[in-house]
Design a binder for these strands. Structure first.
Lengths: 212, 212
DNA sequence: CTGCACGCCGATCTTGACCTCCACGGAATC
DNA sequence: GATTCCGTGGAGGTCAAGATCGGCGTGCAG
């Protein structure tokens, strides 16, 4: 959208650009198209046109469609995992941890570009490279929460993983639903609601341990 | 796999079949391939070969690849919604309702054919017809739970929907994770664990504010 | 016994999308 | 101010996959 020296006119000056800026612009255009159309429906022609350049330029920056998609994916995969991890290590108050993790999912989904669709709604999970990334995100988030659950409750790893996956699923699905429903509920309220739901669910599990 | 009169030999007599049986066999073969490979990666050749017939027969039974997929999808979409609905109306004990809904998801996922992937992991959400089906499942399950939440807690519809989406997401994600992890935990234990988690989460909502 | 009808298969066509080749235009240099 | 160079643009090749036509063999009616 925002190209350094204004948007590319349909026809006129071909706007020469330094390589780095061009690449960033191509990534932005690709993200818009991939998010809007999905991987398969998105054509390289569309991406090139969206960026205001021709296809060869695209292929001078990325070897192929898959690599372009993976570059985008990698950009966002780290973000959500890092946020959840940071929510875990940022405090020792478990209630705050839950709140932080829920907020991480809502922030991720609330990002204007809707880039979360690349991760949560990818139509390329069969591709091993994509599958690996997506699973790493899910596993990473679950693992972070799992460790916290284990060390604070003492339940078995298998059970802790199941609980963690449940919490992750709640946050993820609710965040997506909140967005799909048009943000009818204020973001802070939605986050608080989900945080309360998940916190009440998990809080009593420290059986004989701390009671909040 | 099991064809009425034994498996189709690689070469021999081409096993003539009545139309109805042939259709069911084609649907079964298509389901296996779609589940294993996803929609895009699945080729009509693969499906035909899996069924032991040639492509023209496939097109004599279904107008195209999309219609074949939709036929499969319709078969399974109703199942999960009906199960969740039945869990809601089958009792007035909310704890049992939660247990029943969780069990519905685990049963759905535990079905041998792994047909749940057609609904939960479809790589064709861009297709409006598919999108409509999948969203109807999600919306339907959420709606069923939402109504129960509203009538038993009195929270606003928007908030109840968010809570319901959270519960649905927890059950769905946990069930899938449980399966992906290789059923390490006995099914009944996993169901009980998730039922406890979600029940504890939702149980104290009646008459309670959100800021604990 | 013989002609007929029907379901099935091998081989083919076509579309559409990813990925490269020949002409043009501005910028730096002497 | 002319030349050379490099990046851009439109037109085309290739290939995979969905969709389809003439031949064949089997079982049945007459």
């Amino acid at each position: 959208m925002a190209v350094g020296s204004g948007s590319a006119p349909p026809t006129g000056r071909p706007t020469r650009l330094p390589r780095s800026a061009r690449r960033k612009q191509l990534l932005a255009a690709a993200q818009e198209v991939f998010v809007a159309q999905g991987y398969h429906a998105a054509a390289m022609d569309d991406i090139a046109e969206r960026a205001g350049v021709s296809k060869p330029v695209l292929y001078q920056h990325f070897p192929g469609k898959l690599e372009l998609y993976l570059a985008l994916l990698d950009t966002h995969c780290d973000a959500i995992v890092a946020q959840v991890r940071s929510a875990m290590v940022g405090t020792s108050d478990n209630k705050e941890r839950v709140k932080g993790a829920v907020q991480a999912y809502f922030d991720f989904v609330d990002h204007e570009s809707e880039a979360f669709r690349l991760v949560f709604e990818s139509d390329l999970r069969n591709e091993p490279a994509v599958r690996e990334r997506v699973e790493r995100v899910e596993k990473g988030c679950i693992a972070a929460i799992t460790d916290t659950i284990i060390s604070d409750t003492g339940v078995s790893r298998a059970h802790a993983e199941l609980l963690a996956s449940g919490l992750v699923g709640a946050a993820e699905t609710a965040a997506q639903f909140w967005l799909a429903a048009g943000r009818k509920v204020p973001k802070a309220d939605a986050e608080a609601l989900l945080a309360t739901l998940t916190w009440r669910g998990i809080a009593s599990f420290p059986l004989q341990g701390e009671s909040a």
